[in-house]
Design a protein around this nucleic acid. Structure first.
Lengths: 219, 219
DNA sequence: CTCTACCTTAAGAAAACCTAAAGAATTTGG
DNA sequence: CCAAATTCTTTAGGTTTTCTTAAGGTAGAG
């Protein structure tokens, strides 16, 4: 497997290179955006690891150009945790996945492996709505710089709400998502979870109640 | 996300269950083929993890039967590396993906995630009449730029009126739509709701009275 | 003209929802 | 295996929205 690492900071680039080599990949390093674009265009790499802040040509431009040129090489954004807006933009431009620093090396390797296998159904590992971003790998909810971890049930509810963002998700659908079909859940329990989600979302306006029907994510 | 694990070897089943639970899925274990078939038929699972060599009913039969019964639940075959022929046969019968033992847990999770992402996204569904537009996903009524939210009962009444727009909807039909068949509703109640609807529609001419019969949406 | 069906309004009842806090059940870490 | 921490569930009291009722008025049919 050949991996292109687009990273200008020498220490980071070195770290990534070693880890990938150890896992049996061959690695090509681009030290600035222009180099990254050049190497990416050859199409000989199986995966691209892309830092967004590169000298000369930034990461967004790189993704955009490559995708415009019909290059479909799977691309993984490597970004700082507090730059989630950038990540969203990158994914919109056609990146396939992302990873926030700091990260564990084995997580990085797993992502690279997953991307390079070109899963039968390409799976974005995130769900986005407005400035919300739900990471389905880590179960973290990001919003304008803030990050909160969701519990199992919170995540299950948030996931279905985000999948159907804009339309009402009925009580039954929520209960099915969180506890299984036809589960007998005390009504108060759902209220409590909605409350937790609202707190973690930050803006209570975003998760609205549709009285006696369900809840809906709406701007 | 609900995952059905069809696996007879207790250690393997346990391992899978833990990993899936940790990743936030709810898990149902079938210990033999007959159980797997039974659980699979309910259609309540989002993904099936299927060992091919199960007691009583083997994995091939399970896929075949489920597909014959129009169950489209995404199914992932878990198989030993040296049984690739079996895998091919399984895929031919309608399985969606496969995984060979031994495998990394995060790969398994990535595949499950990939498959489960096929959840049907609710289709946008609208009812239109003249310049009225009723959004059945959000329960909103739009008219010439204006938007008003309908309560549960208002929506139920408006829905039946729009579906039969142009023809008279009887009192009984309206009551059935709003409160259930044969419900005992004070006549004044219906008047009040019709009034609310007229107010939200904007133009009172549009929702006309069919004296001693019912109401009708008409230009 | 009169009767019946309908309209309007407003207030009270009921249902649905929110919040906080405590107890139960799990999970995690030593 | 136990203790601590986290997550989940229940409960109770308070708030808001929706629904229902009732009373007084209007309008069309006979």
């Amino acid at each position: 497997m050949k991996v292109l690492v687009a990273e200008d900071k020498p220490m980071m680039a070195d770290l990534l290179t070693r880890a990938l080599r150890r896992a049996g990949h061959s690695v090509l390093v681009a030290h600035d955006g222009e180099e990254a674009l050049e190497f990416g265009r050859t199409g000989e790499c199986d995966v691209i690891l892309l830092d967004l802040m590169l000298p000369r040509v930034d990461g967004f431009t790189i993704i955009q150009r490559l995708r415009a040129e019909r290059m479909t090489t799977p691309t993984l954004i490597v970004s700082a945790r507090d730059g989630m807006d950038d990540v969203v933009r990158g994914l919109d431009l056609g990146a396939d996945d992302y990873l926030t620093k700091p990260f564990a090396l084995d997580v990085l390797l797993a992502r690279v492996r997953a991307l390079s296998r070109r899963l039968p159904v390409s799976a974005p590992s995130h769900l986005a709505f407005q400035d919300l971003l739900l990471d389905t790998n880590t179960h973290e909810l990001h919003r304008s710089g803030r990050t909160s971890a969701l519990t199992r049930t919170e995540f299950a509810l948030m996931e279905v709400l985000m999948r159907r963002a804009g339309s009402i998700v009925s009580h039954e659908a929520l209960i099915e998502a969180g506890w299984g079909f036809g589960a007998d859940v005390n009504e108060g329990t759902l209220y409590v979870f909605i409350r937790m989600l609202r707190a973690k979302i930050g803006d209570p306006q975003l998760l609205q109640t549709a009285r006696s029907v369900g809840y809906v994510l709406r701007p």
